[in-house]
């Protein structure tokens, strides 16, 4: 039996062969299986159709085949990294860096802009996006951000509303636009 210290040394050892079971991929498999399980359950809740009406092709058949394929393929995922490493392909290089906080903040900011767009209206949502994102991403030059946040949405409005006849949500600007 190896002592705790040895185990730690083994874990930190350089050039250690890839573990047979990849932990992140194992979690991905669990998530995929959970999704497939939930979707399979959903297929059991669909209306049943008599065989003659469905012409022997029940609505559940094709989605279940696909779900089955995904389940089978997902089960192989945790072992893939081991074999890929042997072939000299590293599947971890893209995800080796942690997701930085600005990415999460950006995603939340985008969701906020979309969530507010019904109330703000399309024009103000564009202005908000053009103000919020550059500032979040570190742009501090007011003389750059402000003209961009006004002129760019204006250009988009001209192109879509005047050029392509798209109706923008008026939102807060409704009295002004009327």
């Amino acid at each position: 039996m190896t002592s705790g210290g040895d185990t730690t040394r083994e874990r930190k050892g350089a050039g250690r062969p890839a573990s047979f079971l990849h932990r992140t991929d194992l979690w991905i498999t669990v998530v995929l299986l959970a999704i497939c399980g939930a979707l399979w359950y959903e297929t059991t809740r669909w209306d049943t159709v008599i065989q003659q009406l469905s012409q022997n092709i029940p609505p559940t058949f094709f989605p279940r085949i696909i779900l089955g394929c995904i389940i089978v393929m997902s089960l192989a995922l945790p072992f893939e990294n081991h074999f890929k490493k042997k072939q000299g392909t590293d599947l971890d290089d893209e995800r080796s860096n942690r997701v930085v906080s600005i990415t999460v903040i950006t995603a939340l900011a985008l969701a906020l802009v979309v969530a507010l767009s019904q109330w703000l209206g399309t024009d103000l949502s564009m202005v908000l996006a053009c103000l919020l994102l550059p500032v979040l991403w570190g742009e501090r030059r007011v003389w750059v951000v402000l003209p961009f946040a006004i002129l760019f949405p204006l250009a988009v409005r001209l192109l879509f509303v005047n050029g392509l006849k798209v109706h923008f949500l008026p939102g807060l600007l409704a009295p002004l636009l009327e």
């Binding site: 802009v113 767009s117 019904q118 564009m126 760019f152 392509l164 109706h167």
Partner: peptide
């Protein structure tokens, strides 16, 4: 990048919205 990608977002948002003029499509896009 600080100006280019917000512009891409605006185009994406409007592009997704313009198709059916529906905010639901913008959520789908996001």
């Amino acid at each position: 990048r600080q100006l280019l990608w917000p512009a891409v977002f605006v185009f994406s948002m409007i592009g997704a919205y313009a198709y059916h003029q529906s905010l639901f499509d913008v959520w789908i896009m996001l």
